[in-house]
Computed example of a mutant assay.
Amino acid sequence: MNKNNYKNPGVFSIGEKNDAFAEYFVGQSYLNMLSTSGVVIGNVTFEPGCRNNWHIHHRGGQILLVTGGRGWYQAWGEPAQELNPGDVVSIPPEVKHWHGAAKDSWFSHLAVEVPAEDAANEWLEAVEDEEYKKL
């Protein structure tokens, strides 16, 4: 995919290639940090087929606000749920999960980090291709 050959699926600029976290994604994502103090909010945009690895937010949790495209969210041990603009996912602390684009759609969401003392993010294994392709 070429960043210049798409229609922005969200309402915020997609920002730059998400190179700082590339090792935790399958495919290309983009990051535009909207707030880095107080409540941390990033606009994350995924090219079709891109998803992040399984991960856990320790102590603080995360809220996803879907702004464009079509994607997926899955908590460990639960079926994946389709995400569309306007959907909100509240992810409690300590829940292993992943999120990303559908195979055939760009996808954007605001990732809101819930403030908490000593909050941390633990990155884990990639989502298995076989499981993702079933969605």
Results as ranks from 00 to 15, higher is better:
F46V: 04
E94P: 00
N52V: 02
L110R: 01
K134L: 12
N5M: 10
Q62Y: 04
A120G: 06
V40S: 11
W76S: 08
E94Y: 14
T36M: 08
Y73L: 04
E117F: 11
H58L: 10
S90Y: 15
V44K: 00
G15C: 10
G86V: 09
E128M: 11
H58R: 13
F107A: 06
G42R: 03
Y73I: 06
P93S: 12
A75H: 03
E125H: 10
N5Q: 15
D129N: 11
W123K: 03
D118T: 06
D87G: 04
Q62S: 03
P79V: 13
Q62A: 07
N84P: 01
L65G: 02
R59W: 02
S35A: 15
Y73P: 03
G60F: 02
G77N: 02
G10H: 02
V44D: 01
Y24L: 01
A119W: 09
W72Y: 12
T36G: 14
S108A: 14
N4E: 14
L83S: 01
A20K: 13
T67R: 02
N32C: 12
A80M: 11
A20V: 15
M33G: 03
H57V: 05
N84R: 14
E94W: 11
S29L: 09
E131G: 07
V11Q: 15
G68T: 05
K103E: 14
A22G: 02
L34W: 04
V26S: 10
Y30L: 05
R59S: 08
Y6H: 14
L64K: 01
L65R: 05
I41V: 15
G10Q: 03
L65T: 05
T45Y: 00
Y73K: 02
G42H: 01
A102R: 02
K96C: 12
E94S: 12
G42W: 07
D19R: 10
V40W: 04
E117Y: 13
I56L: 07
G61Y: 07
I91K: 06
F107Y: 13
S13A: 14
E47W: 01
A119S: 14
E47S: 15
T45W: 00
E130T: 13
A119D: 12
N2M: 13
R59P: 00
H57A: 04
N43R: 01
F46L: 06
L31S: 13
G49R: 06
A80C: 03
H97Q: 10
L83C: 08
L31E: 07
H99D: 06
K7N: 13
A116Q: 09
K103Y: 02
L110V: 06
I14N: 08
H109N: 03
V40D: 13
P92N: 12
